[in-house]
Amino acid sequence: MKLYYSPGACSLASHITLHEAGVDFTAEKVDIRAKRTETGADFTAINPRGAVPALDLGNGDVLTEGVAIMQHVMDSAAPGVLPAPGTVARARLAEALNYVSTEVHKTYSPFFYGLEGEAKAKQLALLDARLQVIEDRLSGREYLAGDAYTPADAYFFTVTNWSQFAGHDLSKFPRITALRAKVAARPAVQKALQAEGLAA
Rank of each mutant, 00 (worst) to 15 (best):
L3Q: 07
S6V: 05
P7N: 07
C10H: 11
S11Y: 08
A13S: 15
A13I: 06
I16K: 07
H19M: 07
E20C: 08
V23C: 14
D24M: 09
E28F: 00
K29E: 11
D31E: 03
A34Y: 05
T37V: 00
E38F: 00
F43L: 07
N47H: 15
G50H: 07
G50T: 05
A51N: 12
A54V: 12
G58W: 13
G60C: 11
V62M: 06
L63C: 09
L63Q: 11
V67N: 15
M70S: 13
Q71A: 05
Q71I: 04
V73A: 03
V73F: 05
P79H: 04
G80A: 06
L82Y: 03
L82A: 04
P83D: 05
A84P: 01
T87S: 08
A91Y: 06
E95V: 08
A96Q: 10
A96H: 04
L97W: 09
V100E: 06
T102L: 12
H105I: 09
K106H: 13
K106T: 15
T107C: 13
Y108N: 12
Y108W: 15
S109P: 03
P110C: 05
Y113P: 02
Y113R: 14
E116K: 14
A119L: 02
Q123C: 03
L124K: 14
A125M: 04
L126D: 13
L126M: 14
A129T: 15
A129L: 10
R130G: 10
R130L: 09
L131I: 07
E135H: 00
D136I: 01
G140L: 08
G140C: 09
R141T: 14
R141C: 13
E142Y: 02
A145Y: 04
P151K: 14
F156D: 00
V159I: 15
T160Q: 06
N161C: 11
N161L: 10
W162D: 13
K172S: 10
P174L: 00
L179G: 00
A184P: 00
V189K: 02
V189I: 04
V189T: 11
Q190K: 15
Q190H: 01
A192P: 04
A192I: 02
L193I: 06
Q194K: 14
E196H: 01
G197H: 06
